[in-house]
Write a protein that binds this DNA or RNA. Sequence first.
DNA 1: CGGTGACGTTAATGATGACTAACATCCTCG
DNA 2: CGAGGATGTTAGTCATCATTAACGTCACCG
Lengths: 199, 199
Amino acid sequence: MREVTTAQTPTRNRGSRRTEILDAAARLFAARGFHGVSIEDIGTAVGTSGPALYRHFSGKEALLAEMLLDISERLHASAAARVTAAPDAEQALDALLNGQIEFALGHPALITVHDRELGNVPEPARRQIRRLQRLYVEEWVTVLSELYPGCPPARLRAATHAVFGLLNSTPHSAGELPPEAMAPLMRAMARAALAEAGN
Amino acid sequence: MREVTTAQTPTRNRGSRRTEILDAAARLFAARGFHGVSIEDIGTAVGTSGPALYRHFSGKEALLAEMLLDISERLHASAAARVTAAPDAEQALDALLNGQIEFALGHPALITVHDRELGNVPEPARRQIRRLQRLYVEEWVTVLSELYPGCPPARLRAATHAVFGLLNSTPHSAGELPPEAMAPLMRAMARAALAEAGN
DNA sequence: CGGTGACGTTAATGATGACTAACATCCTCG
DNA sequence: CGAGGATGTTAGTCATCATTAACGTCACCG
């Protein structure tokens, strides 16, 4: 009858299971796609079997929704913080680039899921995710507009999407270069591409 | 009892149905993913119902395999032809860029499927597709190596993948700019990014 | 101790979906 | 005309899967 047993495995950090599930699901979704992964697969990946997941999420789509919402929020929040902290547009762009590159290299599965599986998110959450994505893009466009006035926003928006494509491709071309070499390369390429787009 | 009726709908160009099916399937796969599309969906899209497809393809995976194989072949063949026709490396790179941009803007669904669904192709064909993709990349790396000697091939390979990510993102960011504006923008951005990667 | 809540487990249940079977059409060629 | 082949159709069949039900376990709190 001691409360000595405070460590071990019990008294799990609350929510640790949820995030463990989200992580495993992200990896699986990234590798095989939402419909290519079964609830049972996810359960197995976290050491429980199948329906145990319903203790943590109301369903497969809800799980995906929470995953994408979390990603969008992190990206947007980080971008907003970095931009407001930067002294000028030049450094704001650097900060945005660094943030996106860190995220893409640090969480390849999340990036992959983020730009492939929006279509499988049910409607209440879908709109919210889209909204955050839009805000994130506008963060970039605003900075770029300041850096390249005279360049039409539509062009800058297209350029931004293209740069996302460039940076987010790193999860797929994994292994070509070590991350220490990859990050500066991506930064340099993205910067050059944006400078060219700005004219 | 005339054979006057040579036109109309009968006497279909042989194979027209097959390619019609492949087109429809590509659009559906691009939009919802391989596992998100049913045989019935594809049938409906071409005006027949479900199992009629088995008259043309041995199964869903075989259909995907043929689709990806065809894309890889077209990309590789076009690249090889353009490179050998080009007088120098500079123009070879231009030709490669133009080819990829034309393809990405002209067949957005094919590009999307091409870099998402390889994992669902069964093994005999998978290897073949990978081989063609590798050859395609090497076509780029070879040209870039000539243009930027001294730059390690691994870096050029990574840069090539990144540029594919940039160019292939156009299907997703559709609508930002008209294609006439999009193509030159992508060309300029890709060129700048590659020049930067080459040092 | 008794109970409550968090977390799992193993059987349904009910859809959906790939693929096959059995059965037309109809065009073409002999 | 009549056989053959190409192309469809509709009703199975059999898996797989998401979700739910019914039933433990166990830690903790009163």
